Amino acid sequence: MDIKQLKFLIALDETRHFGQAAARCHITQPTLSMRLRSLEEELELPLVNRGQRFESFTAPGERVLAWARTVLAAYDGLYAEAAACRGHLVGTLRLGVVPLSSFDPLPLMQRLHQLHPNLRFELSALSSEQILEQLASNQLDLGVSYLDRLDGERFDSLALAKTRMGLLYDHRHFSFGEDPLSWESLIELPLGLLTSGMHFRQSIDHNFHSRGLNPLPLLQTDAVHQLLQAVHGGFCCAIMPLDGGLETLTEHLRLHPIAEAKTLARLGLIMRRSAPHSALAEACFAAYQKIIEAS
């Protein structure tokens, strides 16, 4: 067994396609299949259900896959740790962020890239549950998620500023005065909202329902980009983080403050406590702590 076989296994899990997995690993498909069969023979376990194409992983294959991710993360972490001991950071920082977070990762990435030019970044939009799961399984180095249900014994966190809300709209289709909007006034507007299972939507619902209001959204979606497209087209307005910078995406978008509008829970930058610790995660955590202290 070698580390490349584990990389091939993970690539197959992420693509669910033998040809795409081979292309990602810069090898031919027959080579990928041969190396995976060699791994199965060594472990004396069937790992992949094969037909004309990839079908699924076997139950033992799923368990081996989880170990493969842990081993590969430790392998990458070892090289990153050695580089950190030499005063350098290398590798890829894996950061997961909840949708519609008011956290802007750009200043952090710019700061780290200036200090460590060989550092690369992988940014994923994930639910709060997915972020905690992937932090725990070492699939992420850091996460930005809500702190209301965070297990403080398993994770370290840096609380971020409270998320304020505003109304995102296209000024070619809507116009508002200078005063903050009331929740009562939003009821009269064509609203586009995230679906009800998403954390940011729960805060929106709480603000409406605590005032005895029941909105009837014109559009509901779990895709942020589709919501932004609908707003830009004048189809609807959307309640968004006030400090997320979304109004800068095009010259026509505007964000108007909403009175007494904050999310139920604060966001935080989260890092796994259990070993092995990622040198990249620790450096990023410390760098953002300095950004908070300087602001």
Rank of each mutant, 00 (worst) to 15 (best):
I3Q: 06
I3G: 00
K7E: 05
I10Q: 01
D13L: 09
F18D: 03
A21L: 10
A22M: 00
A22G: 00
C25F: 08
Q29V: 05
R35E: 00
V48N: 10
N49I: 15
R50M: 08
G51I: 07
Q52V: 07
R53W: 02
P60S: 01
G61M: 14
R63I: 12
L65A: 03
W67I: 15
A73C: 03
D76W: 13
D76F: 11
G77M: 05
G87S: 06
G91Y: 01
L100M: 09
S101T: 05
S102M: 08
S102G: 01
F103Q: 04
M109S: 08
R111I: 05
L112Q: 02
H116G: 09
H116M: 09
F121K: 01
L123N: 04
L135R: 06
L150H: 06
E153K: 13
R164H: 15
L168E: 00
F176S: 00
G177T: 08
G197F: 11
R201T: 11
L213V: 03
P215C: 08
D222A: 13
D222W: 10
V224N: 11
L227C: 04
Q229F: 12
I239K: 04
E251K: 15
L253N: 06
P257D: 04
K262I: 03
T263E: 05
L267G: 14
G268A: 07
L269M: 13
I270A: 01
M271D: 10
R273A: 13
L280V: 08
E282I: 13
E282F: 15
A283K: 08
